[in-house]
Amino acid sequence: MSQILPQEQIDAWKERVTGHAHPMELVVDVLRAIQAHHGWVPDAGVELAAEILGTTPLRVEEIATFYDKIYRRPVGRRVIHVCDSICCWSRGAEEVVGFLRERLGIGFGETSADGCFTLLPSCCLGACGEAPAMMIGLTTHGNLTPARILAILAAESGEAAP
């Protein structure tokens, strides 16, 4: 994690940018690549993205701070996005949030003491037929019950061991 992005990936992105008619079109992809490698996007990540894309850090920053799935602060090894929109709300999302908070000992925007999980609220995940739902990483989990949440947390914390 010491490096924001491996050199070969930086080179590959720079190659894609060269000759690209609209390099800025790749800004979200570059930020997502940095985040996939580094876990979140630090200031140095914004600067790196600007260098790759041939633009200013400011132009990258105004993108990075807009999207809620780009993390500009340190997060745990797994980020839990719990849906709090209407369909999940109607089927127990508040209980799911309460259970997660109690189980992990954290509130929204916080990271568990072992550095494993960050808890964030999310708008609708498009899993309305399987409400209540949450997304961890890029995987959506629906039909949540306390037992299912425990099993998912156990599996994720095992995979995310440092």
Binding site: H22, M24, E25, V28, R32, I63, F66, Y67, K69
Partner: peptide, 22 residues
Amino acid sequence: RSAGRYILGEETALLNGLEGRR
């Protein structure tokens, strides 16, 4: 592939998103 926010569903916000603008 986008990175969140409902407003991107508005067609002109989506176009800005595609162009790499705020």
